[in-house]
Nucleic acid binder design. Structure first.
Lengths: 234, 234
DNA sequence: TTTGGTGAAATTGTATACGATCGACTAAGC
DNA sequence: GCTTAGTCGATCGTATACAATTTCACCAAA
């Protein structure tokens, strides 16, 4: 499932939007490692556009928290600190139960169908092995939360969740332990079931624990070389 | 209380950041009416910078929802529809109780002092009359919520609240009925008191009703000339 | 070998130039 | 007189040029 539609030839309308989405996908998919420098000239050459458009894309990504722009030094794929990660998940715990309740108000049979379909796909991916499958799994896991957000019909909430999920994906890619993420799938299913039964209290409860589990599966010990860099640059 | 410090001479370091803040303040303060066109050349001339920097500022403001950028037509001060306004307040109802609880965890005596001080200032402004005082009142009212958000120590939540408060100010400026906003002040005080007593359930309850009241005080009937404009432009 | 400084190369910050698009006005035709 | 087509001006989209800053390699001195 490509994120950007490819016309027959490669002379697409390569706009800022397209570049932004491409880079974001690459970051969330972990094809771009955290800390990677995104040189304006290099990226521009890659997409055959001038630095102007690249700058716009990088600025947008910096607003989303996926890229850090340092004055006179350039843009880098974000390297979220453990503290940042903690804050992201704290925020999710804070708003996702509310989103769930709000979404439940607007959900009809077709919505449940969509959710179930997504969960099937998610389950299928879990069966597979390999780097690609794991990436797809992380993505699918995020899509579940995004779909719930979209069902609120509230564009503001949706945008907040977009950002939170993207940054979470980055954090998971960084600190995730490959092993246990499979339990998340069952939790998604349980949440949908609880909503379907009208037991929203239980659904919220499950959601919070689900987020707890995601966070607990991370190994966020201070590590790597880059931490020193961060420490002294600030 | 100036928002941007003015050095002795007017040859300040006029960067994108400065332009963005200036425009945002002007929008939130209602010195720029919703729907106003923000021509890149004009704004640039005003700040003595090129269109490049202005574009950056306008793009950032468009992420915040304070400005709408229409392709090949230009940037306009946002004119939030009633539906948008509804979504903004729905989102606030969803996250502010959580912010309140989170903030309460970190609050010590000095924090309460700061809050009380802000409330005093707010009360003082309420006594005065006139356009300027009303603007300051709207701003102070927002600052209360922002201060709570800052006390969570969570940068993500803080940023979300920044955006929500700014957009709320715009909505209030647009649809607000000048009369009744004074009751908000008492509600702020009641909320602080409840937190101070450790009665967080009550504080959350008060907060939600407070937001309800703000929204109820708006007159969001479809109106004005600009709505027609919007209607036909889309 | 390490430390410190200097200069060139690379990269970003900002301004400007030019092509593209949109809107308004005018004029011609019905 | 109203509609419609065409041109002109203004404004935006993108690329490029130039200035400012950083980075890095190289060399000299301790």
């Amino acid at each position: 499932m490509k994120t950007a539609a490819l016309p027959t030839e490669d002379q697409i309308d390569v706009s800022t939007q397209y570049i932004r989405d491409s880079i974001r996908d690459a970051i969330v998919d972990r094809r771009l490692a955290p800390g990677t420098k995104l040189s304006e000239a290099d990226v521009g050459a890659l997409f055959n556009v001038s630095r102007t458009l690249v700058r716009g894309a990088l600025q947008a990504l910096s607003y989303e928290g996926l890229v850090n722009v340092e004055k006179n030094r350039g843009a880098f794929v974000a390297y979220p600190s453990p503290e940042e990660a903690r804050q992201i998940f704290a925020t999710r715990r804070l708003i996702e139960p509310g989103i769930l309740r709000e979404a439940a108000k607007h959900m009809g049979p077709s919505h449940f169908q969509h959710l179930r379909q997504l969960l099937m796909e998610e389950g299928r991916l879990m069966g597979e092995r390999g780097q690609t499958a794991r990436r797809a799994e992380i993505k699918a896991s995020g899509d579940f939360h995004l779909m719930l957000a979209s069902m609120t019909g509230n564009a503001v909430m949706q945008r907040f969740m977009d950002e939170l999920v993207a940054r979470s994906s980055l954090v998971i890619a960084l600190y995730g332990q490959s092993a246990i993420s499979s339990c998340g799938h069952q939790e998604h299913q349980d949440i949908v079931t609880a909503i379907e039964r009208g037991d929203l209290d239980r659904a919220c409860h499950l959601m919070i624990h689900h987020i707890d589990h995601i966070e607990a599966d991370l190994d966020m010990r201070e590590n790597k070389s880059s931490d020193l860099r961060e420490a002294f640059k600030l």
